[in-house]
């Protein structure tokens, strides 16, 4: 537990960091960003939560098993690579299409986003698993 100022700032900053990480993840395939830096931003936000509220108090209302995220992300990234072989192309071949969404207009939908989501889950799972294990000692 730290002071009230840090906890109040953390309540404002943590949702903004999570939104920035999702924004970096979704724009990652043709603009700056991507799965790795999005995962680092998410791990930064959750570690700010752990630092300002303490690990023991954070675990009372928010206690996921981060190693499951690591494994699921690695499975998803591998499936994104193998899936293109099954479809008859080279390893990690990507394709894209354009969707017409209401309220957003034309949106580019790329299949590289599956690999990026896998990298995102691997990074948040690995970093937060290490932080939590080191904090529990």
């Amino acid at each position: 537990m730290t002071t009230l100022i840090t906890q109040t700032i953390a309540k404002v900053v943590v949702p903004l960091c999570v939104f920035l990480s999702i924004s970096l993840l979704l724009t990652g395939h043709d603009q700056p960003g991507g799965g790795f830096i999005g995962g680092v931003m998410f791990a930064t936000a959750i570690s700010l939560l752990y630092i300002s509220f303490g690990l023991d108090d954070s675990k009372k209302f928010f206690n996921p098993d981060w190693s499951l995220y690591f494994g699921f992300g690695l499975l998803l990234a591998t499936a994104a690579g193998i899936g293109s072989i099954i479809a008859g192309y080279n390893l990690l071949r990507t394709d894209y299409t354009y969707l017409q969404l209401p309220l957003f207009g034309e949106v580019e939908l790329s299949s590289a986003i599956v690999f990026d989501i896998g990298v995102y889950l691997v990074v948040i799972g690995g970093l937060l698993f290490i932080f939590k294990k080191m904090g529990e000692d």
Binding site: M41, Y50, K132
Partner: peptide, 23 residues
Amino acid sequence: VLAIIAFVGTIAIAKYIDKGVVF
């Protein structure tokens, strides 16, 4: 990204200096 990481790093080192633990 650099501003957020520097902010969290400073808070982590400040808590380490104050309490002796980070988490």
